[in-house]
């Protein structure tokens, strides 16, 4: 279930090795999962795996690579860029022979455009940053420090910023300020309202919801079988 793949090294060095969670039984349908980012990645990790288990049972191979710099990746997070993550997900799609993509929340920002698939509750870069910056200003205020969103944004652009414990480099930060998820041909939105229930990324603590996992996996299976999504 835990496997590895080799992303291309950005500077032409020897390629590093990244881990992935895979339900890989060599079937025709192979779904690449672009996971949620940062804090949302933790909150949605279990849900993501629950959806993958259901799809596996329904006959779909599921491949969940780490974003470089996250989880067990050896790459330093502060050196990651939006373009780099896009390239990594596209490389993962090729290396793992994915036929479809399921992008979750900000994962939609890096979904390989060549693959048909779904953006689940897609999140934009500005909203992602806004939430994380706000968490930092609230924490700072509690600690008696005066930090403003504006000053933090300027700092993020100039030298990068640590938000919620995640070190975001200046290039990633600047790119996120403009990044909007875009549906490529063959891709469609799956809004939370279509799944029903509260989005699990909203939870203060990581949670799970079997009924939501059933519905998300069900929509994908239905859509793969040719029914409208």
């Amino acid at each position: 279930m835990i496997s590895t793949w080799n992303p291309p090294a950005p500077d032409g060095d020897m390629a590093g090795e990244e881990l992935l969670v895979a339900f890989d039984r060599g079937r025709d349908l192979r779904l690449l999962i672009c996971p949620a980012w940062f804090d949302e990645a933790n909150k949605l990790r279990r849900f993501t795996l629950e959806v993958m288990r259901r799809l596996d049972r329904a006959g779909v191979d599921c491949l969940l690579p780490d974003l470089p710099g996250c989880n067990e990746s050896l790459a330093p997070l502060e050196r990651q860029t939006l373009e780099g993550w896009r390239a990594a997900m596209t490389a993962a799609a090729e290396a793992l022979r994915a036929t479809h993509v399921l992008a979750i929340r900000a994962g939609a920002l890096v979904a390989p455009p060549a693959l048909p698939g779904w953006h689940y509750a897609a999140q934009s870069g500005p909203k992602l940053l806004r939430g994380m910056i706000r968490a930092r200003t609230i924490a700072a205020r509690e600690a008696g420090l005066a930090e403003t969103s504006e000053a933090l944004m300027a700092e993020g652009r100039a030298q990068g910023l640590t938000l919620g414990g995640w070190t975001i480099g200046p290039a990633m930060f600047a790119a996120l300020e403009m990044a909007e998820p875009a549906l490529a041909p063959g891709q469609s939105d799956l809004a939370q309202s279509a799944i029903g229930g509260p989005g699990l990324w909203l939870r203060a603590e990581p949670g799970e919801d079997a009924a939501q996992a059933d519905r998300l996996a069900g929509r994908i299976v239905q859509s793969l079988a040719g029914a409208p999504a």
Binding site: G131, R134, T137, A139, T148, E150, L202
Partner: peptide
Amino acid sequence: ELDSMAVAGLLTEMEDRLGIVIEDDDVD
């Protein structure tokens, strides 16, 4: 469980659902 990250999520969602904008100075 309602830490700064969760509060930030709550406020951002409030903006979306209520159609309001919450500034830094509003939050105390």
